[in-house]
Amino acid sequence: MNLIEDENYKVSYQQEDALVVFSGTLRLGGMSEYAPIVECLQKAVSETGSLTLNLKDLDFLNSSGIAMLSKFVISARNKEDFELSILGSNETPWQEKSLKNLQRLMPSLTLRLE
């Protein structure tokens, strides 16, 4: 499950770079529809001690998606010595506040807004 996509979005897990890249517009309905992405992220966490999420090309993430990411960050926070980095974009309106909240959930999280 290294690539999840439909016509609107794409989530790809690049194992060799310990990187998960999100792009497009994510408007899935509820946590149940986000389950495959959660599974992918959990797999990535289990396989590496340091993971980067690149959200720069994710133009929109709905509230369920933000909830999903928040819950993921909380679970990552509970893993000892785990390093999580998030790359975001200053030009995408939803990202600044939401990603800063993720950092507040996990103070060790490296957040880079470009």
């Binding site: 509230s63 933000i66 909830a67 928040s70 819950k71 909380i74 506040k97 800063k100 909240n101 507040r104 959930l105």
Partner: peptide, 16 residues
């Protein structure tokens, strides 16, 4: 921003 957290986003946000 530092005075709270999105309400209902996570189970326990008391600290925020």
């Amino acid at each position: 921003d530092e005075l709270g957290f999105p309400v209902g986003l996570i189970d326990d946000a008391n600290e925020f």
